[in-house]
Structures are given as C-alpha cells and as structure tokens.
C-alpha cells in the first residue's frame, strides 16, 4: 500500500492557528481507523511539537507518512535551534518567556511528553539554523 502523505505549513506568528495541523492529522488517523488511544497519543505528541514550533521555532513544516505499520512525523523549523538537547529534554526545563506562560504553556513538559507518546524520537538541531524532530509510532 502507498503511504498516505500529509504536509502542513505552520505559521510562526499566529498562535491562534497553532494546533490546526495536529487536528487535521488526528482526523486523518481516526478516519483510517487507528484506535482512539493511538490516535490521541499521536495527536498529543504532534500538538506539543507544533506548539513548540510556533512559540520557540518561528513556525515551520510538518510532514506525515502513514502506513498501517508506521506513522512517521517530521517537524522542521528554521528557528534559533536548541543549544543543549539533553537539557531541553529534561522535565521542567523551559526558556519560555512570561507571555507564553500566560497563554498556558512553558512548563518544560512538551519534549518529554513527545517522547512518552512516541516509539522513536530523534532531535536534530543546530543553533541559528533550526530544529528537526523525527517521530515514529508503530501501531502494532
């Protein structure tokens, strides 16, 4: 079977629209017939990534490939990058400014939460160039 491919451009300046891509991905997974639990887990992981892309990364692109065996998601931005990935992965570590906290984010839980809800998570980041997060979930 040909994989189903989805592409989304995520605006870096429109906080209101953040989550639009994740919502569409969730809908697609549901329509294909993946379980509610798997669909929710993937949705939460992608949404955390999409929010990060908007509040830290200045926007970017999300590419998804879906087969019955593997859901693969690549979140790429051209933002400031992450200087210390191990530190960023720690629960509670956040550089989010006060205005982001007032919007309900910035607890430093997003990256650890992505890890929790996916089977594979690879972060590539270069300061000044951007960040790419590759995620895989194996439905079986």
């Amino acid at each position: 079977m040909e994989p189903l491919k989805l592409h989304f451009d995520v605006s870096g300046s429109d906080f209101t629209c953040a989550g639009e891509a994740s919502g569409n991905i969730k809908k697609a997974l549901k329509e294909i017939g993946f379980s509610a639990a798997l669909t929710r887990n993937v949705a939460i992981a992608v949404y955390e990534g999409e929010i990060n892309m908007v509040i830290h990364g200045g926007g970017g692109q999300i590419d998804v490939e879906i087969t019955p065996e593997c859901i693969s998601i690549v979140l790429a931005d051209q933002g400031p990058g992450i200087p210390d990935i191990a530190l960023a992965m720690q629960e509670g570590y956040s550089t989010a400014p006060e205005n982001v906290r007032q919007l309900g984010f910035g607890a430093g839980m997003g990256l650890p939460n992505i890890k929790k809800y996916t089977d594979e998570m690879i972060i590539e980041s270069e300061v000044g160039k951007g960040t790419t997060i590759r995620l895989k979930v194996f439905p079986q």
Binding site: F15, G19, G23, I44, L103, G104
Partner: peptide, 15 residues
C-alpha cells in the same frame, strides 16, 4: 480560567 483557542485545541487532542 484560561481563555484562548489552545484550551479548545488541548481538549480536542485529548478527546
């Protein structure tokens, strides 16, 4: 007590 679209989106993602 937070009012912005991400509250609805968060609820959406979490069913």
């Amino acid at each position: 007590g937070l009012v912005n679209p991400q509250v609805v989106r968060t609820a959406e993602m979490m069913d």
